[in-house]
């Protein structure tokens, strides 16, 4: 199997949930047998932003909150690439929230993985958009004054066509979600619960794992799998009413939190045309000859576009 590892020293904190996500991505790509040079991974800023440096594919560590526009630009220029974007919840749902919402409108065929830990780790643990109000994580001087947003519900409302939640410490399950996301034709959003061992001392690995509530001598985990309870996320027809019903179910599930926390696929709709298909409907040659693969000059470096026909409207 091709290795997706690099020799770059990984400087995440010991025990960080990011490791689980990293290996899940690497395993997913390897199992899908995608040639490393056909993959481009874009990231934002923060601990999660370093992810591409640890993966042996094209890796673009962009600006804070901006991984999605970069990823979309690259994908639309060359739709034959497999494109992933990764970033933290502050990166994607705070500073990059506008891009997160508007990306849902387009359904570009790519996969976006959010490392969701409730804090801005790299700047020493400030509250991020998914931290609940009144929680006081380790380095906050006062309890969090803002309410948390619900990434799954926003993704549904924004129009993502594959929406899932994974758990960083269940890498086999997360790997499968990432594979499904990559295989889904359209924008896939995967929210990953990712404990930050250094700054989030509330929603910890132990908390998700239910080690605070022992039943029959065993912890009762908070995290459970939707598929184990017969939840069906898949839209099976192009009927918009069916899609609406599935969306409402997904939103309802997304508000389940605390004692029981669902992971797995919340919603998947294969009937929405991808942005690439929408472009191809306007520009028939787009699929065969997308922007990055078009010749623009002849061997003498002369431009090959002819604007003589366009001149008609300007000729006097």
């Amino acid at each position: 199997m091709v290795s997706f590892r690099t020799a770059v020293h990984n400087d995440w904190c010991p025990g960080c949930g990011d490791f689980g996500i990293l290996s899940s991505i690497q395993m997913a790509l390897a199992e899908l047998q995608i040639e490393p040079s056909r993959v481009a991974i874009f990231s934002g800023i923060g601990c999660s932003g370093k992810t591409p440096h640890y993966i042996n594919t094209y890796g673009i560590h962009t600006l804070h909150g901006r991984s999605l526009p970069f990823a979309i630009g690259a994908k639309l220029a060359n739709p034959t690439l497999t494109v992933l974007a990764v970033g933290g919840d502050g990166d994607g749902l705070g500073i990059g929230a506008g891009h997160f919402v508007n990306t849902g409108r387009r359904n570009v065929d790519f996969t976006y993985i959010v490392f969701d830990n409730g804090v801005y780790g790299l700047t020493k643990g400030q509250a991020s958009p998914t931290l609940a109000r009144d929680l006081k994580t380790k380095s906050l001087p006062r309890p969090n004054i803002n309410d948390a947003i619900n990434p799954i519900a926003i993704a549904v409302a924004a129009g993502y066509t594959f929406i899932a939640r994974g758990y960083a410490y269940d890498t086999r399950h997360l790997k499968e979600l990432i594979k499904k996301g990559i295989q889904h034709k359209g924008s896939a959003f995967i929210d990953v619960l990712q404990p930050c061992p250094t700054y989030n001392d509330i929603t910890t690995k132990e908390w998700f794992g239910g080690e605070d509530r022992i039943v029959d001598g065993k912890p009762l985990p908070r995290v459970y799998k939707l598929e184990d309870e017969g939840y069906d996320p898949l839209v099976k027809s192009a009927d918009p009413d069916e899609a609406s019903r599935k969306k409402l179910e997904a939103i309802a599930k997304s508000f389940e939190w605390g004692e029981r926390i669902p992971i797995g696929v919340f919603y998947q709709n294969p009937f929405i045309p991808s942005y690439e298909e929408r472009i191809a409907a306007r520009i028939p040659s787009y699929t065969r000859s997308p922007p990055a693969l078009q010749p623009i000059a002849d061997k003498n470096n002369r431009p090959i576009a002819s604007i003589d026909d366009i001149f008609e409207e300007f000729l006097v």
Partner: peptide, 20 residues
């Protein structure tokens, strides 16, 4: 959605090799 996306999409496309 805004000019921040505009410049960064263009850069993403340029990385893919197109004149953007």
């Amino acid at each position: 959605e805004d000019e921040i996306a505009a410049i960064n999409m263009a850069s993403g496309a340029a990385l893919a090799g197109v004149r953007a």
